[in-house]
Computed example of a mutant assay.
Amino acid sequence: MGKKILIVDDGAFMRMMIKDILIENKFRVVGEAADGEEAVLLYKKLNPDLVTMDITMPKKDGITATKEIIAEDPQANILICSAMGEDSMVVQAIRAGAKGFIVKPFQKERVIQAIDKVLSK
């Protein structure tokens, strides 16, 4: 069975797009969250191998959620999915403990390469 992935994005279409890419590449999507608050709760419950994390979301942003997950599990693999123009946010996310990032809109190959890179560390 493939690695367990938690998808976090406030956009249902974006979650579906990421999910399709992951399933097509033999990953197992174990959960989806629409905000950072839900992401932290699901991380604790599901213990995924990797989290794809959006930055700008309601209730709790991706940087805050990343900090909370890393505080709970310093070995957590978090991959930031950022829109263009959020460069300073990406830097903040990496400082918060994220292990990599991909820029939206993304290509399938880039998503898989980024996930493989984070999981191989």
Rank of each mutant, 00 (worst) to 15 (best):
A96H: 02
L6I: 11
L46T: 06
K44Y: 03
V40N: 01
T66V: 12
A93Q: 07
L6S: 07
M89H: 13
E24A: 14
A76K: 09
A33Q: 02
E32C: 03
K108E: 15
I23N: 12
V40K: 10
K26S: 14
T52V: 03
I78C: 02
L50K: 01
L41C: 02
G85F: 02
E24M: 10
N77Y: 07
I55E: 02
T64P: 01
S82Y: 08
S88I: 01
K121W: 00
T56S: 15
K104S: 05
I115W: 01
A34V: 13
K19V: 00
M84A: 15
I5Q: 09
P105I: 07
K99M: 08
I115R: 09
P105V: 05
F101L: 05
C81T: 13
R28L: 11
K60N: 05
D87T: 13
E32Y: 05
Q113D: 14
K4T: 10
I7K: 09
M89Q: 12
E37H: 04
V118N: 00
E37Q: 12
K19E: 13
Q75M: 09
V29M: 07
I70Y: 12
A33D: 06
I94F: 03
M16G: 14
L42D: 04
M84T: 06
I5C: 15
K67D: 04
G31T: 08
N25A: 10
R95Q: 14
D87A: 13
V8N: 06
V118Q: 00
I78K: 02
M1F: 06
G100F: 03
E86G: 01
G97R: 05
G100L: 06
R110G: 10
R110H: 14
Y43N: 03
M1V: 08
K4V: 03
E37G: 07
D54F: 00
G11A: 14
E68I: 10
L50W: 00
K108I: 02
E38A: 11
M14N: 12
G85R: 09
T56A: 14
F101C: 09
M84Q: 12
E72P: 00
Q92M: 03
P58D: 14
A98S: 08
K108A: 15
K108L: 04
K59E: 12
G31F: 08
P48R: 11
I21D: 08
Y43P: 07
V118G: 00
Q107I: 15
V30M: 01
A98N: 03
K26M: 04
I63E: 12
D73V: 13
A65I: 13
D61H: 09
